[in-house]
Amino acid sequence: MRARHGGPAFRRLILEDPACGFDARDARVTHNNPNEEHGRLLEACAAGDHGALQTLYRLEGARLLGVVQRIVQDRALAEDIIHDAFVNIWTKAHTFDAERGSGKTWIFSVARHLALNHVRRQYREVTVDDTTAEQLDAERSLTASAEIEDTFDWQGRGDLDRCLKALEPERRNCLFHAYVDGYSHSEIAERLDRPLGTVKAWIKRSLQSLRECLS
């Protein structure tokens, strides 16, 4: 369904590095509150401490690679993005503000948005006037209403659980196909075999109801 990779021109640019091994001598892993720990490590990065970056890599590298690989569906490209993400984390660490969100969230955002920017650049979505699309699709969406179950094992992970529970499973699936798989509106529509306009409207309304539920 998706063929997301940069092709040969991109691949040529990847630096090969067969020789170097991972040196963990300087890594300092502690088991304090993980959220605060990430913030402190980012502050250390901003102060020029390379060891802090290495510790962040040891703590989150594998999870970040999983998240990015899921979005770009190409292992070499995912590793390139993790490389770029850590360079960004290093150079932008001073912009992290512990008052606004956790260090861990900040790090994941850096990597995830690099991955999303990549897949969105590869595939420009065809613009369809939303209202027209909804009208055209209305009939089809009415006729297709089989029982849909959750595709994602989402429960018990965050404060949003309570609000997510209020959504219909298929709408939850839309959100997670976007957030976790990095699917565009049209990819979700294709995956769920639903009209594009419907998927766009569902996501918009789901976000609205999540916001209302939280306020």
């Binding site: 690679l65 969230t105 994941f108 989402w154 965050g158 404060d159 957030y179």
Partner: peptide
């Protein structure tokens, strides 16, 4: 809000 749900993905 959404970050906790990234944990659904298996690490690599």
């Amino acid at each position: 809000r959404l970050a906790p749900y990234a944990s659904m993905v298996e690490p690599l």
